[in-house]
């Protein structure tokens, strides 16, 4: 079960996810300690392993810093569900083997604190709190392959040895 941390806003950007003052390191545990700090300073206290972040449009816009994905993975977040994603964040997520869910329409069916059961393969979010089922379009096959291999570099290496 995954608890939803809902931030309704659009355009939550990489500066809020991991501010530049922490970009002098790429240590994931360190980055994780500051995840979403400028958006919600209590987030790291509230979040538990397996939880998810729910947001509006254009999540992860701004810088190309992969540190944003590492910070979110680092705190143990299972997935980010957003109406839409900024291009580089979306790509970085897949490259890291991190599944993100694009949900343009039904995002309002998830409220802060709802418990979700997510079936990535089937493209189904069961909102256990409200009893509502939400369908989403699973990622395209090539992205799934990368995620299944554990990330882009693993995927490339596998391709090279196949």
């Amino acid at each position: 079960m995954s608890k939803a941390h809902v931030y309704k806003r659009d355009h939550i950007n990489t500066d809020e996810i991991i501010p530049a003052r922490y970009l002098n390191t790429d240590d994931r545990a360190e980055l994780a300690r500051h995840c979403l700090e400028d958006l919600d300073k209590d987030f790291v206290k509230k979040v538990k392993k397996g939880d998810c972040i729910v947001a509006g449009e254009d999540f992860g816009c701004g810088s190309s810093r992969e540190h944003a994905v590492w910070a979110i993975c680092g705190v143990g977040v299972q997935t980010v569900i957003a109406k839409t994603f900024a291009r580089i964040f979306y790509r970085n997520a897949i490259d890291n083997g991190f599944y993100v869910i694009e949900l343009p329409k039904q995002i309002d069916k998830i409220s802060d604190g709802d418990e979700l059961a997510i079936d990535f393969k089937a493209g189904l979010i069961k909102n256990e709190t409200t009893g509502i089922d939400i369908k989403f379009a699973p990622l395209p096959d090539f992205a799934l392959e990368i995620i299944n291999d554990g990330g882009l570099l693993e995927h490339i290496k596998k391709g090279a040895t196949d």
């Binding site: 190309s64 810093r65 992969e66 994905v69 580089i88 970085n92 990330g151 882009l152 570099l153 490339i156």
Partner: peptide, 9 residues
Amino acid sequence: GIGSTDLAA
């Protein structure tokens, strides 16, 4: 622009 994993690749 790309992130670090793409950059590595």
